[in-house]
Design a protein around this nucleic acid. Structure first.
Lengths: 70, 70
DNA sequence: GTATCTTGTAATTTATAATTGACATTTGGA
DNA sequence: TCCAAATGTCAATTATAAATTACAAGATAC
């Protein structure tokens, strides 16, 4: 069981942002919906490239979307 | 030859920040100096966890240190 | 000019991110 | 209530980040 210390608020931000679905955001970013689902569920550590693309499409700064939970 | 579109200013920020060496920053973050070297050279896409730790120790926001070059 | 610390890089291995395909459950609208 | 879209999750594979070991090139101090 791997412990992931990086937290995010991608899911609530996506939903707040209108009716964008996981699939739509995944397509915009260029990942599969499974990957987006795991990111939203905070099951692992995505790459900075994916995080930057998510931040771009959700129109939020990185630091607001991702942080370390310690 | 893999093209990495994520740019960063980790190296100049580290040097500006005093006399911190690559090895010291790598140790703080908890990666090897080779990994830190590759990140500074923008040879690949690090994880958000590593980027958050770098930002913490360099005392800069993520968005200031990492961006997408397109 | 030589010893030492720092950095760049390369080849190999290991860990894990990300994909693919599939199925079950939940949600919301007609 | 029924149907379809959206989400959660799993197992297996592929791609790539990160570690390890090692050596060479620059820099700095003596």
């Amino acid at each position: 069981m791997k412990e992931i210390s990086v937290k995010n608020k991608v899911k609530i931000t996506r939903i707040e942002k209108g009716k964008m679905t996981q699939i739509e955001l995944a397509n915009l970013v260029g990942v599969t919906r499974q990957t987006m689902n795991l990111i939203e569920a905070q099951k692992y550590n995505p790459s900075i490239r994916i995080c930057l693309l998510i931040a771009r499409f959700l129109e939020k700064p990185l630091d607001e979307l991702f942080w370390i939970d310690d």
